[in-house]
Design a protein around this nucleic acid. Sequence first.
DNA 1: CTGGGGAAGGGGCCC
DNA 2: GGGGCCCCTTCCCCA
Length: 375
Amino acid sequence: MLVEDSQAARALLSKKYAHCPLKKRPVLVREERPATPPTTPPHPAHLATRLYYDYHCDTENDEPENLSTKPEDLSRTGNYPSKATSPVATEIIKAEPKEWPQQLEYLAACRARLEPAPTELARPTPQYAYLPTLYPTYPLEELYPAVPALSPPAHPQLYTRYSPASPPSSCSPPPCPEDLRSPGSVSSDSGVSVSASRRPRYQCPDCAKSYSTYSGLSKHQQYHCAAAEGSLARKSFSCKYCAKVYTSLGALKMHIRTHTLPCKCHLCGKAFSRPWLLQGHIRTHTGEKPFSCHHCRRAFADRSNLRAHLQTHSDVKKYSCTGCGKTFSRMSLLSKHLEGGCGAPGNSPYEYRSDAIPTTHTHQQLPPPATVHAY
DNA sequence: CTGGGGAAGGGGCCC
DNA sequence: GGGGCCCCTTCCCCA
C-alpha cells in the first residue's frame, strides 16, 4: 500500500510534477532506514554485485521505500540496503574490509562461480570503469545478422504518409540488419510473428480483434477490450486504490501491482510494478550495458535506447517534416520543430519515412496518429 | 534551442 | 494464468 509521507512532500509533488503524467511522478512512500547506517559507503562494485544477484520482488511487503528517479546518494542518506539474502552477497559484505583491488578480484570470483563463462564481455563505460565487466553482452552477429552499410536508401522516394484511418501496413520497411529484435521473433507487418500468422487466429467476440494465441485473446479480454468491459453480463473487479474496473481477478491483480509496486531496488529503494522493470533499473546501478552500437561501439543498457541511437547514424531520419523536408530521429524532435514554427504549409501531419534506418518492422513502432502531440 | 542519451511505463506475445 | 521478454513511447536532463 502506498503511504504518503507528509503534506509537505505532497505539496512538492503537486508543484514540481504538476505537469507530469501520473506514471512519471514519483510515488511518496514511507522511507525505511536501517537501524545503524554503515560508517563508510559500500564500494559501488559491492552494491552492483549485491544487487545483481540479490534483487527480488518483495512479495511479503508491498510498501516501496523510495521513489527518486536517480540513484540516491547513499553516503548522504545512510540508507543502505539492510539485508543481503544471497550467499554471495553475504560473502561480499563480509569482504568489505578488503582492499578494493582485492575486492574486485573477489567479486569476479564470486560471479564466475554463479554464472557460466560469458561469451563476450561488455565494454564498460567510462563512468563505471571501476566495475568488473562480468556480464555477457549480446553477440554482434545476433543483433546485426549482417553488417549494413550506412549508404542512403535505394528508394528514398518511397515515403508513406500515415493516417489514423489507414494503418500503414505499407510503412513496414524491408528487412534490415539493423533490426534489433531477438532471433525468432520475426514479425510480419501485422505485428504477428510470421510463423504465428499461419496459425489460426483467435478473435474477440466483443470487438472482433484477433490474436495469434488464445493467451493473447484472453489477456485482451481481460485488460483492454472496451466492448467486453461494457458487457453487463461480465463480472467486474474494481481496484480499491483507484476507479479502474477489470473483468477478471487476474487482470485486477496485475493492475494492483502498479499500486503496490512490489519489486524494490535494494540499493535505492525505488519500487517497480514488474520484475523486469527492476532489472532495467538495476542496470543503472551496475553500469551493465549489453547492447552496443556496431557503428560507434557505444553501449547501452536498454535495447530501445540503442535503437534510438542508431537513428543518429542515419542520414535519413525516420520522421520528416512535410513542410520543409527536414528529417528527425525522434517524433518528439519533429514535434518541437513544428511547435517552433516550421513556416512551410502542410506541416501538420508528419511523414514516416520507410526508407530510414528502421528499428523494427512492426506497425506498432510506427508514429502515432497524424496529430502531433503537444507536450 | 536542438539533438541525443538515460530512464521508466505499458501493451503484446511467447513459453 | 503467470512470468519473462520485447517493443514502443514518453519524459527528463544535459551538452
